[in-house]
Design a protein around this nucleic acid. Structure first.
Lengths: 160, 160
DNA sequence: CGTTATAAGTTGCCCAGGCAAGTAAAAAGC
DNA sequence: GCTTTTTACTTGCCTGGGCAACTTATAACG
């Protein structure tokens, strides 16, 4: 392979700065709105949302962690809090004692329903309203590539 | 105004999931590489990089915080650590005692120079290599809009 | 000028999350 | 079938970062 120039050019720098702004400030903005209006974080919202879409509103911890871009310790501790608020119940998987199942309770579902509209509105406002229909398509395509690369990295990646 | 449909459609959902993956997993991947190869975080790298580009490698804390998407308390504590490692020196702005100036030391610059190549390579690998030239342009345009919106939100936003 | 208001940093308290070590259950090896 | 390994989750320890309260320095007001 030839020697790749070690630095980013001006265009790349600008894109990179904007991307940094988005990856840092966007989650912060989502957290602010959810914290203010619903007392939960963006991550917590995501877990409730994912569970609500599962069969019998029930999932294994490991699967839930993967889908929510989380680690197991992080999810385990979150579930402690959710259990205390009675938003989920924990039980050992009867078919394999290593797995733990989380099931969303009625009040957990209610919490999601209550906080969803404000959150969705915030997502619209911060992301979709900034883009034309064409831009949205292009953005989606490019983003899908980057997301795929990053997902692979998060798994075994180039190290494994 | 008419009633906006409260949910995202399928395309929007997909874009949104990819965006969530990127904003969560991309910083994590950057942190892993930098932590492993240089013992610093992505945020710390960004602060070193920004300072290195300033006149006399010196900036006011408030300005540095803005440019690095940081809060003052966060930056203040980071500077405690950097000062302990002698990567920066702190001094009161002689022209206005409220401001504090941070100046990058030689070893601070050295740290940046040492860690830059690996970091830049990681950025290339995770972002730019996933995109064609055309996608990169489109992506940059859309991203710039979103970044602008999010920056405004981080400042006074719609509340202020 | 003395008083009040505003701006820039700092500190303390608290909590979330990372990592490494520990536990428990199932699968593999022999 | 007993030991060893692997998988899934949990726990403890430690650090980073958010927020609110405090300190200090200038600006604005009268």
């Amino acid at each position: 392979m030839d020697t790749p120039s070690p630095w980013l050019d001006a265009d790349q720098q600008e894109l990179w700065q904007d991307l940094l702004t988005v990856v840092i400030a966007l989650p912060a903005a989502l957290d602010r709105q959810l914290q203010r209006d619903a007392g939960i974080s963006n991550f917590e919202y995501g877990v409730l949302a994912r569970l609500s879409m599962a069969d019998h509103v029930t999932m294994r911890f490991s699967e839930l962690a993967r889908d929510c871009n989380s680690t197991l310790p992080r999810l385990s501790k979150l579930m402690d809090r959710f259990e205390a608020r009675e938003w989920i119940v924990r039980r050992v998987d009867p078919s394999d004692g290593r797995y733990t199942l989380a099931t969303l309770t009625d009040s957990g579902q209610q919490k999601l329903v209550d906080s969803a509209p404000g959150h969705v509105a915030q997502v619209r406002r911060l992301v979709f309203d900034s883009l034309t229909a064409t831009q949205r398509r292009h953005f989606g395509t490019a983003l899908s590539n980057v997301a795929e690369t990053v997902r692979r990295e998060a798994a075994g990646g180039p190290t494994g």
